[in-house]
Write a protein that binds this DNA or RNA. Structure first.
Lengths: 155, 155
DNA sequence: CGATATTATATCGTACACGATATTATCGCG
DNA sequence: CGCGATAATATCGTGTACGATATAATATCG
């Protein structure tokens, strides 16, 4: 390992690895979210599921999983917890009994109003301008899509 | 919700949230890593611990946790698995019996050589140039540090 | 129309990940 | 020296996460 090896590409030092930056930023987001979600009684993944349902109510488990990149083995227990909290209902679709429709409750709609302040808190915690924040969002989303594409079609 | 609400700042749509981009990119990295680590018998977090030890052997649990932002409740079982795999040894420091020194085995050093190709695979999977890749790494690391700072000193 | 394939969820086993707490070792101060 | 405070690791309970598999409903094709 010579002094300028770091210049020629990624190495095995966590601090130089993009995957570690993403991994640790994910944990850091969870940590910032924790007190904000405490009042709502939600975890961060539960909040993401609620956010997906606020965009479109009445999705089935598969649609939510597709949007959030999660499997039914993760979502089924999580949705049962949201149901126990009184934020969603889970019902088999009468037209196709294989599917489970997830619907928001009245409480969930109240929750949405309380959550509207959260994105601003996150932006503030990032110390970034809105412009840089959204640009980074797009770059990371593009990276994610390229990685998923590569994982699905291994070289 | 009007058509240009997206222009005035972050909202509650997962696809517009930086936290979701990071969250899903983290999962995507795991997915790309899985086949690469399969041969080595490691999970992604285990690989990160190995990488931290390749930078500096003989660290104690706390030092590893500080570098990777992980608690002893996560690391202790993980390190026991790495020990069972024959990649590390765990020994109480004779000078301070509270600390557990984690040392690499001979196998771990062979593993390092086999791992040197991995960062290049990740870069290729990202579809990015090395320059952009490293720039994104720095931006995400900066974001993480700002979030951790904010979590530690809430506004 | 009925056997087979496919699809949608659910369940199970393993592995993170954290907060709260327990345990043991060291330190500091009288 | 001894005793309370502090520090390092481990343990426990809860909640993700995934791959493999199970189960049940629908679709397909002869």
């Amino acid at each position: 390992m010579t002094a300028n090896d770091a210049d020629i590409g990624p190495d095995l030092t966590p601090d130089n690895m993009l995957c570690f930056a993403i991994y640790s930023a994910n944990h850091a987001f969870s940590r910032v979210y924790k007190p904000l979600l405490k009042d709502l009684g939600l975890t961060f993944p539960q909040f993401l599921v609620m956010a997906a349902l606020w965009v479109e109510d009445g999705q089935n488990v598969g649609a939510i999983g597709e949007k959030l990149c999660l499997e039914s083995s993760t979502l089924t227990p999580l949705l049962k917890r949201l149901e126990a909290l009184g934020y969603v209902t889970r019902n088999r679709d009468p037209d196709d009994e294989r599917q489970v429709r997830v619907n928001l409750t009245v409480d969930a709609k109240k929750l949405r109003k309380k959550s509207l302040a959260i994105p601003g808190c996150l932006l503030a915690a990032s110390g970034m301008t809105g412009k840089d924040y959204m640009a980074l969002q797009r770059n990371v989303a593009r990276l994610r899509d390229a990685l998923l594409e590569s994982a699905a079609n291994p070289p």
